[in-house]
Design a protein around this nucleic acid. Structure first.
Lengths: 204, 204
DNA sequence: CTCTGTGAAACACTTCACAGCG
DNA sequence: CGCTGTGAAGTGTTTCACAGAG
């Protein structure tokens, strides 16, 4: 029963968001399933990885469940995040309001452009990339978001690895081959559009 | 052997990117595998869904393979894309240079803010959301990217569906429940960070 | 009687290992 | 020989269906 499947981890995060849209002290697997669009059996199986959280005949206690999921996802206290690359995308991400309310705090942006370094974006400082490793090691952030051009991405990834960062969200359009010690999630716009293109073609 | 697995479709898009980094007229499953970080057997299995494309003892013809993948992904001619929401993120996406070279053309951004409508971002016009359906129906775009606030997302999705758009990439932090006629890929920053948080916790 | 938790079956996807083609 | 294409085995994930708790 140990070792939560990767697919389940991804859904737990969705259930967490979904809980916000549900009313009532207790909720059933059925109602969660309806909100996130999966089967009720799937929800029960997923939640069973957290141990017995529900009450038979009644459902799950909403608040208790929220905490249990957050604990399992490591969302205790505030998690520090760094944004590497202060270009268009980096700045847009810095302006995204959802971090704070989800328990994430952006510590800083990093760039190598001297005309940007020292400035601020959405209230966040832009620091030089060379200072990143020290900030990482002193625990200012635990997760990094790569928002650089493609050419810079693998270099940045190597530096992050060296600085002991294990979790990376990559927005650069590059195929990154992370060391096994790292967990990298790629969000490549081209790839996503290409996948959508396939499903468009195969829907008529 | 028909019906390409979803997982394979996602990798085909990656192989396509990976081909750019490989030299030579012919390439082996081994070399593709090395570039995108999967097993060679996986690559061969995936490519076999395209029919017999390789030559035993030699490998795959790079140019031929690229075309075969593009054809399968529906990347024939140029595919039109719309960006809904001309805020921070929408503007950042509009400035992303990778669309053109991958065969996608952004037709327009859409917004409801009258101070934005009529303006331009990165050379692209911002049109009123109310004109979107007509543009969709006249074939100006086939894929839409939602870059609105969370509250607006499901309303936009409904409008897109009504306008006959089947393929949507959603950047709004909302759990969207698409009709079965649509294929929606969600890129939710919070969800991604929460998943990364889990793997960070479970790596020490 | 309702709704959870879970064996067991079904399904989906990946990897192995090798026959066979060029 | 080298490298593809693919049965067969293995692994991971989802769904069914129901026992059992409240």
């Amino acid at each position: 029963m140990r070792a939560i499947p990767r697919a389940t981890v991804a859904r737990l995060a969705q259930y967490l968001q979904g809980l916000d849209q549900l009313e009532g002290r207790t909720i059933s697997s059925q109602s969660i399933a309806a909100v996130v669009g999966v089967g009720a059996a799937q929800v029960r199986r997923d939640l069973s990885y957290l141990g017995h959280q529900g009450v038979r005949g009644v459902g799950y206690d909403a608040e208790h469940l929220r905490r249990a999921i957050m604990r399992e996802l490591g969302l205790v206290g505030t998690v520090g995040v760094a944004i590497v690359g202060a270009g268009n995308l980096g700045q847009a991400l810095a302006g995204y309001g959802g971090f704070q309310e989800r328990g994430f705090t952006v510590f800083s942006l990093y760039d190598i452009d001297h005309s940007k370094v020292g400035g601020r974006v959405s209230g966040l400082p832009i620091r030089h990339l060379d200072t990143m490793a020290a900030d990482a090691r002193s625990g200012r952030f635990a997760i990094a978001i790569i928002a650089t051009p493609a050419e810079a991405a693998s270099e940045v990834l190597a530096r992050l690895n060296e600085a002991g960062i294990r979790s990376v969200l990559n927005f650069a359009p590059a195929v990154l081959r992370p060391p096994t010690s790292m967990e990298v999630r790629n969000v490549d716009l081209s790839t996503e559009l290409q996948i959508l293109s396939f499903y468009r073609k195969h829907s008529r």
